[in-house]
Write a protein that binds this DNA or RNA. Structure first.
Lengths: 199, 199
DNA sequence: GTCTATAAATTGATAGAC
DNA sequence: GTCTATCAATTTATAGAC
């Protein structure tokens, strides 16, 4: 049984509303109504509309970071590792498209302090992807000239899913994540023989 | 000399404000103030805040569609053509990142009628990219299994630029567009010899 | 912890003078 | 075509009863 406290019901309602209409267009009345409560009840459990956004955004960032960190540790082979990282990151955005939309599109609606806090998590995600590419280049199995740019591009595939992905649509998250992982390998794999004993 | 009518000044002010704060968080007072006019002056030149958004969004969609259509007609070689399409589409998003942000992120803020009107332009962009991939596959120089998914992924590279790109930043639009075009070729090019006389 | 009621500020849009 | 002034509705958030 999920406990489902009033606080959690409000967070779930906020996720729905923010993802559907955006933070600025969402009213606290709307959130309260979706949670089956009066407008005043929101403020018993949360300080403000923005603090509700911060709760959702911070948790979402942590979740995405955990997924990509776990994938980065899943294999010692750089190609397998990269495939898993891109697959898992894209799948996370498909499986969590509403939270993902809030994470990616409502970043600017956070207070400067809260924005700075999630910014460190964002940089950590980017660094994890860059490190994975750099390691593959060092081992001679990946061919990537522009590591920061390519890392960003690989992440973009997953991030951009939240702009249009709807659960129950014509394409599954698994299909899209598999496609992205395949494209990622084609984008980065070394062409020639990966392990040649001598020059 | 740019004519710069009051109507145009208001549109430029709206582009700045919508891109910076989002449509819902932008007030008509903010737009008027950026254009150096009183709040009431907005309604002499535009029907509503939403009609201002529609003007910006429709023009932006038309511009992006024109760019990719022109690129699609630039060469008869599928590889050159694809390179140009991805380069131009990404460069457009870098060079027009504020309008691009409004095009991509404020779609849901349009009225249903206005949304339907720009939706046809969006579909046209996607179809142009899909057709280019299909033609390359037919000619045996591109190897693409999932044409709709790959087309979307190629467009995502450009679209996702508007989420973070700032003019004057550390990377130029040309650099990013070149990177995206290179990645696009690696994602789609046939591996083996493209023109073999016999099996 | 929930509610009703409401404060205090801000919003999109309009009226009417010049 | 621009302004000042303002309307009417809506907003976030709070007060106080239960």
């Amino acid at each position: 049984m999920t406990t489902n406290t009033a606080r959690e019901r409000l967070i779930n309602a906020a996720v729905e509303a923010f993802a559907e209409k955006g933070f600025a267009a969402t009213t606290t009345r709307d959130i309260a109504s979706r949670a089956g409560m009066s407008p005043a009840a929101v403020y018993v459990h949360h300080d403000s509309k923005e603090s509700l956004l911060f709760t959702v955004s911070l948790d979402g960032h942590r979740s995405a970071l955990a997924v990509i960190n776990r994938a980065a540790a899943s294999s010692s082979d750089p190609v397998d590792r990269l495939r898993t990282m891109v697959y898992d990151f894209s799948l996370w955005h498909a499986d969590n498209s509403r939270v993902g939309r809030i994470v990616q599109y409502e970043y600017h609606a956070l207070t400067p302090e809260h924005r700075a806090e999630v910014a460190t998590l964002r940089r950590s995600i980017e660094r994890t992807m860059q490190d994975a590419l750099a390691d593959g280049v060092d081992q001679g199995v990946l061919d990537v000239t522009d590591i920061p740019g390519t890392a960003f591009s690989l992440l973009s595939l997953g991030v951009d899913l939240v702009r249009w992905f709807e659960p129950g649509g014509s394409r599954s998250g698994h299909d899209l994540a598999t496609l992205h992982a395949d494209l990622a390998i084609r984008m980065t794999a070394a062409r020639a023989a990966p392990a040649q004993p001598s020059a």
